[in-house]
Simulated assay, not measured.
Amino acid sequence: MAVDDTVLEAVRTRIGTESAHELGTITALMIRRYARAIGESNPLYYDTEFARGCGHPDIIAPPNLVTAVSAWDEGPAEDGLRSDGVPTAALQDLPTEGVRVMGGGEDIEFHAPIPAGTTLTERSAMVGAELTHGSKGPVIVVRYRHEFVAADGRVLLTSTRKVLLR
């Protein structure tokens, strides 16, 4: 099925719908493992005393750690994935049968460092959808806003992700 104005209007019915879920506590072990995985050597991500000397309560997460995690649980079983690998639950209520789903980029705004021991909630909302035309035909660009919020209510990071439906 090709995307068109009918699919776009169905997608747009979800604009403004918000959700929130607890991500849990960002641990020092998570931070160190992620920093190693991306080849990071900054002592802020490994050395508690160094981080404290820089004014942080503990080591801090590399800036994109929380946005790089695609699932904060064990993830779905194979029968919970589409043929393109996208979890079916991620696209709930969207008319994506026969539509290819792809990542379209992300803008990230960093508000404050995330030290080990921070408990986070992710608040998400679809904020827009538009039909454009690419070299291979029509594409719907869907934008989602994600806020990563500390237990005290401070927004530590905001990301805007684009998802392409073709």
Results as ranks from 00 to 15, higher is better:
residue 48 T to H: 03
residue 69 V to N: 03
residue 24 G to R: 14
residue 44 L to I: 09
residue 11 V to T: 07
residue 51 A to K: 04
residue 14 R to M: 13
residue 6 T to A: 14
residue 33 R to T: 09
residue 61 A to D: 12
residue 35 A to E: 10
residue 48 T to M: 02
residue 54 C to P: 00
residue 12 R to H: 09
residue 7 V to F: 06
residue 57 P to K: 13
residue 64 N to R: 10
residue 58 D to I: 02
residue 19 S to Q: 12
residue 69 V to S: 08
residue 22 E to C: 08
residue 58 D to F: 03
residue 60 I to L: 01
residue 42 N to S: 08
residue 70 S to I: 14
residue 63 P to Y: 04
residue 29 L to Q: 14
residue 68 A to T: 04
residue 45 Y to I: 02
residue 34 Y to S: 06
residue 26 I to C: 04
residue 5 D to I: 11
residue 55 G to I: 00
residue 22 E to S: 12
residue 6 T to H: 11
residue 52 R to V: 09
residue 68 A to F: 01
residue 16 G to C: 03
residue 65 L to N: 07
residue 61 A to T: 04
residue 33 R to Y: 01
residue 40 E to H: 05
residue 59 I to T: 01
residue 51 A to W: 01
residue 21 H to A: 10
residue 41 S to K: 11
residue 17 T to G: 08
residue 48 T to G: 04
residue 17 T to K: 12
residue 13 T to P: 03
residue 24 G to V: 06
residue 7 V to R: 03
residue 38 I to R: 07
residue 28 A to K: 03
residue 50 F to V: 04
residue 49 E to M: 10
residue 23 L to R: 10
residue 67 T to V: 15
residue 23 L to I: 07
residue 49 E to K: 10
residue 7 V to H: 01
residue 22 E to N: 13
residue 18 E to I: 00
residue 44 L to P: 02
residue 14 R to A: 15
residue 32 R to S: 07
residue 17 T to F: 08
residue 36 R to Q: 12
residue 34 Y to P: 06
residue 47 D to W: 04
residue 36 R to V: 07
residue 49 E to L: 08
residue 6 T to Y: 09
residue 48 T to W: 00
residue 21 H to R: 15
residue 59 I to E: 02
residue 6 T to I: 14
